[in-house]
């Protein structure tokens, strides 16, 4: 059976690892769903987003959530999903105060997903929702065209802040710097290391790499604590493996 499916030892190892991680993730998610609290180190960008969501509720000026341009060609879908997680938080906070949101997307799938998230947030808040929301704007499928369109959209109405959450390339720098002209704080980030460096220089608060994937746990989805601690556990295992491998290789026992 295993040979018929072409399963080599490397594939079996990957499958076993995925199953083990899925088991740990399911266990920790159930555990933290039952007891949703844990000490977390402070991530400035997510703390600032909470403050800005409060300010948006007071001023009735939305937080502009920029989801980035199409992720589907290069497949950084996880970043897009985390963009939706951050949008979900902003949408729920806005819906709780019966306020509008402002979202820009440079990809049809991101745009459609954002519509669904806003509709669901309003449904949960008991607000009757139309089928298509004008606050979610499609700004063009090309990254630079998206950035220009998103800035134009943000200039149309005063915003409390600009949140860049999703996949960004160099257009993220363009968007962040152009959005600075509105005077509103800018925060967010991306998982891409090179773009992350550009965004660190241009945003007021930036998140990198794994901090981006912690959005749910830090904002309003405590069941994401399970995945956060799964990542920590895996990171610890990797550190032990690297150190163990280094020691074994130095002693001439491996490699």
């Amino acid at each position: 059976m295993i040979q018929a499916l072409g399963l080599g030892s490397d594939v079996l190892a990957v499958l076993a690892m995925l199953l083990a991680v899925a088991g740990i993730l399911a266990f920790l998610t159930l555990r933290y769903a039952a007891r949703p609290s844990a000490p977390l180190r402070r991530i400035e960008a997510w703390e600032r987003l909470k403050e800005l969501a409060n300010r948006a509720a007071e001023t009735a000026q939305p937080i502009h959530v920029a989801l980035g341009a199409g992720p589907w060609e290069g497949l950084p879908i996880a970043e897009a999903l985390m963009g939706w997680v951050a949008l979900g938080y902003v949408a729920r906070r806005a819906a709780a105060c019966a306020q509008e949101a402002l979202v820009t997307a440079g990809d049809g799938v991101l745009w459609a997903g954002a519509q669904g998230i806003l509709n669901e947030a309003r449904r949960q808040a008991g607000i009757i929702v139309p089928t298509a929301l004008p606050e979610v704007r499609f700004s063009g499928p090309d990254p630079m065209a998206y950035a220009v369109g998103a800035v134009e959209t943000a200039r149309d109405r005063p915003c409390t802040a600009h949140l860049l959450a999703g996949h960004f390339g160099p257009e993220g720098l363009w968007l962040a710097q152009a959005a600075a002209q509105t005077g509103a704080p800018r925060l967010g980030g991306t998982a891409d290391a090179l773009t992350g460096a550009l965004l660190y220089a241009s945003l007021d608060e930036a998140v990198f790499g794994e901090d981006l994937f912690a959005a749910g746990a830090y904002l309003d989805q405590p069941h994401h604590l399970g995945s956060l601690f799964t990542q920590d556990l895996l990171r610890s295992v990797i550190i032990v493996l690297i150190l163990g491998g280094t020691v074994l290789a130095s002693l001439g026992l491996w490699g």
Partner: peptide, 28 residues
């Protein structure tokens, strides 16, 4: 280190969807 963190985040995010812990297709 950054790439490892991103890879772990990506894997766990994908598993969350596969295990239906996250349901982005339902707007959640």
């Amino acid at each position: 280190g950054l790439l490892l963190g991103v890879a772990l985040g990506t894997m766990v995010t994908a598993l969350r969807v596969l295990l239906a812990i996250d349901q982005p297709f339902r707007g959640e």
